[in-house]
């Protein structure tokens, strides 16, 4: 079928610590997938393996029919097809908001400055940060930084957006504004892969929820199944713990 990313037997070890164990997983075009699980379950590592910020120890990652772990594959070109949003925002401190959104377009995609600014402004409007183009990252609040980071990733016009716990470093009152933006993106039909602790958001937005525990995918399916009537005992245990905390 039209799997945009297909992961086969992916494993990752840090020293003797096995973080991912034989993961099989795929994302279809236009699909919104939320990955949930407790800390240390390997969900962030899975995301980081997908764009090769971590080098997988074994297995295959097939992107549009090509194995990108093949030595000859151009990983830099592949990475431009994936937009990444980090927990810690990671905006470039030496650029203002607009600079953050155009530097990649100009230097990596070789767009002209005018073209890059047009694209950047389009996505800054989507996240509601188009008024702040002159601001430096340190002058923004956490929620604003994350919205700029989303616009920066979108400006590269990727095929898939990866979100690595985008709201975990935010104050509670700022979580809403970022989730709202992500919800709008999901409605636009973007392919999104989201690692999150926001169960409500996952239930509302996800087409599919994946529950990970101790480096394996325990359960995956539509949100009504995984989040409401989980089949696996481990999923039920996790949900009970998370919901009690709230």
């Amino acid at each position: 079928m039209d799997n945009i990313i297909e992961i086969q037997h992916l494993s990752k070890t840090f020293g003797s610590n096995e973080v991912l164990k034989d993961i099989d997983f795929s994302v279809k075009k236009g699909e919104v997938v939320c990955i949930i699980g407790s800390s240390g379950s390997g969900k962030s590592t899975l995301l980081r393996c997908i764009n090769l910020l971590e080098k997988p120890s074994g297995g295959q990652i097939i992107y549009k029919g090509e194995n990108i772990l093949d030595e000859k594959h151009d990983i830099y070109a592949y990475r431009t097809k994936l937009g990444m949003v980090f927990q810690q925002f990671n905006l470039f401190n030496n650029y203002n908001v607009l600079g953050n959104c155009i530097v990649g377009q100009m230097k990596v995609l070789k767009r002209t400055r005018e073209e890059a600014i047009n694209v950047a402004m389009k996505y800054l409007k989507v996240v509601g940060m188009d008024q702040y183009i002159n601001a430096k990252p340190k002058q923004l609040s956490g929620g604003q930084k994350q919205r700029v980071a989303i616009a920066r990733a979108l400006s590269m016009e990727p095929d898939v957006m990866l979100f690595d716990e985008p709201t975990s470093a935010l104050d509670p009152e700022m979580v809403g504004e970022v989730l709202k933006v992500m919800k709008e993106l999901a409605e636009l039909g973007l392919t999104m892969l989201i690692v999150t602790h926001e169960m409500g958001f996952a239930r509302d937005v996800a087409d599919r929820v994946v529950f990970m525990d101790q480096g394996v995918i325990v359960e995956e399916g539509p949100p009504e199944q995984v989040l409401v009537n989980p089949v696996q005992e481990r999923t039920r245990e996790f949900l009970r713990r998370t919901l009690n905390e709230l």
């Binding site: 764009n51 990475r79 431009t80 990444m84 980090f86 905006l91 470039f92 990649g104 990596v108 590269m156």
Partner: peptide, 8 residues
Amino acid sequence: EAAHAMGM
């Protein structure tokens, strides 16, 4: 990481 993730 942010720069690498962008393809630099």
